[in-house]
Nucleic acid binder design. Sequence first.
DNA 1: ATCGCTATTGACACCGCTGTCTTTCGCCAT
DNA 2: ATGGCGAAAGACAGCGGTGTCAATAGCGAT
Lengths: 358, 358
Amino acid sequence: MSRRPTSFGKLAGAGPPVATIYDVAARAGVSIKSVSRVLNKEPHVSEKLRLKILDAVAALDFHPNVSARGLAGKSRLVLVLVDAELTLSHLRSEHGNLYFDRLQLGAMLKCREHGYHLIVELVAPGADKLGETLSSLRPDGVVLTPPSCDDVTILDKLDRAGTPYARISPSRFFERGLRVFIDEAQAAQEITASLIDLGHRRIGFIAGPKDYGASQTRQAGYLQAMSAAGLEVKPEWISLGDFTFESGIDSAAALLGQTPRPTAIFASNDDMALAVVHKAAELGIKVPDALSVVGFDDALSARFCLPPLTTVRQPISEMASKAVELLIAGGEAKDCTDAAQLPYRLVIRGSTAMVSSD
Amino acid sequence: MSRRPTSFGKLAGAGPPVATIYDVAARAGVSIKSVSRVLNKEPHVSEKLRLKILDAVAALDFHPNVSARGLAGKSRLVLVLVDAELTLSHLRSEHGNLYFDRLQLGAMLKCREHGYHLIVELVAPGADKLGETLSSLRPDGVVLTPPSCDDVTILDKLDRAGTPYARISPSRFFERGLRVFIDEAQAAQEITASLIDLGHRRIGFIAGPKDYGASQTRQAGYLQAMSAAGLEVKPEWISLGDFTFESGIDSAAALLGQTPRPTAIFASNDDMALAVVHKAAELGIKVPDALSVVGFDDALSARFCLPPLTTVRQPISEMASKAVELLIAGGEAKDCTDAAQLPYRLVIRGSTAMVSSD
DNA sequence: ATCGCTATTGACACCGCTGTCTTTCGCCAT
DNA sequence: ATGGCGAAAGACAGCGGTGTCAATAGCGAT
C-alpha cells in the first residue's frame, strides 16, 4: 500500500478538501489500483473488496477527476461543433430556432448518462481553430451537424487527428465517420403520398445536385410514391436544382410556367421550397389555395415563412443522443455499428391543402 | 535538459503524432520549464529564448494539453449551467427561444479569446449532479442564469466547492458571487416614461415580492418616472405580486376593477404582464386599444404572446461574455471587479399604444 | 580578477488516475 | 505436505503539464 500522503483534509486556501483516489484507497485499506478497477468496472476484484471500496467512495463523496483521467487515458469529453455562420444568422434574424437546444439537450443527457461531458465550440468554414481545439482538448468524440458535417476541411482535420466523429444527417461522403440519419427515401415517399392524398395528381419535383446522395434518395422516394399511386410522372415535372434558394427560383419558374401547371411541388429541401413559395407569390399564385408546396428538413425558416412549410422533421434530440451513444460505444468496442437510422416525422403546416377545382 | 523520450513521431496506433511540450523543448534545445514559461507569458525568459521557443511551437503546431494543465493547475474550463425545467418547457412549446444561443455564443467567444473551453451541463432544482460535476471537472468558473442563479442550493454547493461563479441578472442575494446585470431602476424608469409619452396618466404598477431587490428597484424606477412627469401615483395603483403568473392575475383584477381604471399597467416582470393581458382579455378589455401593458425581462413568452409584449431586453450575449470575462479575470487577479452593469434595451411591441380617448 | 547580486534557466517532485507487470493468495491435484 | 495455477491485489511508471527551489549566468562594483 502506498504511503503517499492523502490530500483529504488538508486545509489549502483555495477550495475545501476534495477526496482523491488516494483517500478512497486509504479509507478502504486497499491500493489505488483496486479503486481504479472498481471505478472502471474492470474484472478481477473480489466482491468483498468491491463493496468496501464502494462504501469508501460513497462516504467520501468521491468523483474521479476528469483531467487526471484524461491525461492517463480517455478524456471523457464530447465536442459539439456549432456552425458559426448558421448561429450568427439565427441571432440576426429574430427567429427562434430550437435546433441547437434540441441537439444539445439530447447530447448532454446521453453524455451525463455515461459520465461524459459536453464541450461546445464554434466552428467556421475553414475550421481555423479546430486543430488547436482537438490537440489541446483531445475529445473522445465530435458531433457534427449540417452544414459543417459535410465540410471536407473539417472531416479531414478530424481524420488527421484520429478523433472519432458522428455526423448528423450528412448529405454526402456517406462512408466517412459515424452517421445518424433518417430514412430519406421513405420520408420522401410519404410526403409525396400526403400530397396525393390531398387530391394532387400533377406533382412537380425539384431535385438536388445529382452528386448528393440525399438528393437521389429523395427523388427515388418521390418516384416510388407516384408509381405506387399509379400516377404518371412527366419528365418536365422534374427540375434539377442544387439545394440553393436561387436554383429553387429557376426551377419554380420552369415548373410553374407549364400548362397545365402542377398543383403541387415537392422541393427536395426547404430552401428550394421557400423559393417556390416566393416565386409563386411573384406570379400571383396563391399558396396553398392554388399550389401546395412541401419541402424537406424542417429548416429554421420553414417554420416561420408565410405560409409555414409542410416538411419532414428529423428527431434532432434523439439523433444527437444517438450520435453520442455511437461515439462512446465506438471508444469502448471495435465491433460497433457505425451508422444509425432514426424515425422521422411529417410536419403538416400551412403550405399544403386539398387540391382546388382542377 | 531532460532525456525523456519524446513522443513526437512515435507511431502509436491510435492517432497521429501530436507535439508535446517535450517535443517543443527538444526542438528548441531548452528545458520544458522554459517552454511552459513562454506559454504562460511568465517573466524571466530572455527574448532570444522566447523567439526560439515560439518558433518551435509554431513549427510543431503545438498546443498544450488541457487535461495536463488542468491536473497541474487551472482547468481552463468554464461551466454553463442550463436550467433543466426551462429548457424542457421551451422544447415542449414550439416557441423558439434565443436565450441559450445568445448566451452560449457570448460565453463561447470570450472563452475562445482566452484559451478556455465551454462545458454545458444541465441543472435541475436540487442540483443533484452538481457536486459531482464540480469535483470531477473542477471548472475555473461557472456561469449561472435565471432562474438557477437564484437557487440557494446551487449557490451553496458552488461556495462549498470553492468554485467562482458569475450570476447573470440575479434577482436576490446580491452579495453572492460575481454579478452581471442591467440598471433596472433606469430601465423601469424609461419604460414607464415611454407609457407617459404615449399619453398615459393613470399607470398601474404590479410589484414583485418585497424581499426581492429587483422588485424594489423596478418600483423605484416607476415612481421616479411618474414624479418626474409630475404625475400623482394613487396608492391603489400599486398592487403587490410575487412574480408569478397567478399573482399577476389577482393584481390585474384589483387594478382593472377600479373606476376609473388605469389606461396602462407596468408589471414588474413578464410573467405578471402576461397575466394582465390574460385577465384583460377575460374582462373584454382590448390590449393595446383600451389598455397598454408592459413587462420586464423580455422573457421567452413575451415575444410570442398575443399581442407580443413591450418589455425590457437584457443584452444576453454581452452579459454572458462579461460573465466569462469576470470569471477569468478573477482567476488571475485578486483585485478585480465582482460586478458589471451593462446597457439594456427597450423592446417596443404590440402591447402598448397611444392612450385612447380618455 | 574577484565578489555579490539579480535575471535566467533547469532539475525535479507532483497533480490524480490508468496501463503493465509482479507478487501474493486461494484452492485443487498429486 | 508440495507444486501448480488462475484470480486478485498491488507496485510502479508514465500521461503532459506547473510550482518550487537550486544552479548558472551575466554584469557592475571593488
